[in-house]
């Protein structure tokens, strides 16, 4: 039993997967700050609205001033660009984790908290622990980092099913929450969808069931796993098309379930540094598929 749990928490994963995931994650973080948590740039002008969340209070983090915001933004962007190329994976990686962690706390301390950043934050803290990716990188250390990200992704889905029932009660799947979302922020596609009888009612049941079953992703492999990942990716795409909510920080982490080690990255930009000498054959032969 303990052996099975250990094998599950420390699966043998090709280190190259972490190298590729780093590129995706570290290039995504600056975009996140510019597009999705860009509200932070406006926060210094609204000191009265600052309501720091618990972690920010415990750490005694200073309120966002113009100087703090610019400094954190610059630090994170520079560290991201360094880490994305595989250089200084620990130093640059933890700098991104701490810097973006502070950024996210500032973003969520003005009366509105988003729930799509958990997996990204976990990824930022887990990925540096693998260190440099090379011939001698431990497949178990890689496996844990990937597994931790996967757990955070699944937790986001599963725990949101729990929250729906905790707050919405069993009325949730039979209520009008989807209609509420489309009425408040529906796109053209969303308003088309609202014309279809029973679609939202069925969709609510489908979503609740899928989120409840999401932990199976942690135990599937091969085609069944990819089908599950495709399902959630499609769910996010449809949500984005109909109510313009994208959950991209979570989607980026959803790729941790895929054999990213088989992707070849543009070498000219240096993103394949430390990966190049690890051919996919080595990665494939030296590890078993996750799941």
């Amino acid at each position: 039993m303990a052996g099975a749990l250990t094998r599950w928490m420390f699966p043998q994963v090709a280190p190259r997967r972490v190298a590729v995931l780093r590129v995706l994650v570290y290039l995504f973080v600056p975009l996140d700050m510019l597009l999705f948590t860009a509200g932070v740039f406006q926060h210094p002008g609204n000191p009265g609205g600052y309501r720091p969340v618990l972690v920010a209070r415990l750490l005694g983090l200073p309120a966002p001033t113009q100087g703090v915001v610019i400094a954190v933004f610059a630090l994170v962007v520079i560290a991201c660009l360094v880490a994305a190329t595989g250089r200084l994976p620990r130093l640059a990686g933890y700098a991104v984790a701490l810097g973006f962690g502070y950024w996210a706390l500032m973003a969520m301390s003005f009366g509105k908290v988003d729930h799509d950043h958990l997996a990204l934050l976990v990824a930022l803290f887990a990925l540096p622990s693998v260190g440099a990716v090379g011939e001698r990188t431990s497949a178990e250390a890689t496996g844990w980092a990937i597994r931790f990200v996967q757990i955070a992704v699944v937790a986001t889905y599963f725990l949101s099913a729990y929250a729906k029932i905790r707050w919405g009660g069993w009325e949730w799947p039979n209520g009008a929450t989807f209609q509420w979302a489309v009425t408040r922020r529906g796109t053209f596609v969303g308003h088309l969808a609202e014309q279809v009888p029973f679609l939202f009612h069925l969709g609510q049941w489908g979503l609740l069931i899928a989120e409840t079953l999401s932990p199976v992703l942690l135990f599937l492999s091969g085609r069944a796993l990819y089908a599950g990942v495709a399902f959630f990716a499609a769910f996010h795409l449809i949500t984005w098309m109909s109510i313009a909510i994208h959950f991209l920080p979570l989607v980026v982490c959803l790729t941790a379930f895929l054999p990213l080690e088989r992707l070849r990255l543009p070498g000219r930009l240096g993103f394949d540094r430390g990966i190049r000498k690890l051919g996919a054959g080595k990665a494939g032969a030296g590890s078993v598929p996750l799941g």
Partner: peptide
Amino acid sequence: LFPFGPMVQFAFSVP
């Protein structure tokens, strides 16, 4: 409790 708080997006029901 962010980032460890409940995942309350759309976690309410509308009668």
